[in-house]
């Protein structure tokens, strides 16, 4: 199964790691470096199968990004996984309210990320 994934993270290291994990799983990845950039990229691309997003990012944070994605009719159904170092339940609840599909705490286990992606995107 090949999935197309949009990953939004302001840390280059994280983007690199996500990309490697995805590539090794045979997925295609598109990367963006903050929420605003993520929205631009999303706008330009064939809608991805899954979106991965960080929470703490400049310009537009993860919550704002998820809100904005969910506000678009055509992106309403795309699963969004939050990948962050945050683990507070209040933040998880906020992300879920915004429309996040799942939450993975960094540092992430690549295998777990791939399992989660397959799980949410089929």
């Amino acid at each position: 199964m090949t999935l197309s994934v949009l990953a939004v993270d302001d840390s280059r290291t994280m983007r690199d790691m996500i990309k490697i994990a995805l590539t090794q799983a045979g997925f295609t990845s598109t990367l963006a470096e903050d929420g605003e950039h993520g929205l631009e990229v999303l706008d330009d691309m064939t809608p991805p199968d899954v979106i991965i997003t960080d929470i703490n990012m400049p310009k537009l944070d993860g919550f704002g990004f998820i809100d904005a994605v969910r506000a678009q009719e055509k992106h309403r159904g795309i699963p969004i996984l939050v990948l962050t170092t945050e683990s507070a339940d209040t933040l998880k609840a906020r992300a879920r309210k915004a429309g996040a599909t799942g939450w993975i705490v960094k540092p992430f286990d690549p295998a777990k990320l791939v399992r989660a992606l397959k799980m949410v995107a089929g």
Partner: peptide
């Protein structure tokens, strides 16, 4: 979604 997986999707260049 599965039929449109955007294969050669270019990786958005960070800056």
């Amino acid at each position: 979604q599965a039929t449109a997986p955007a294969p050669g999707q270019p990786t958005a260049a960070p800056r």
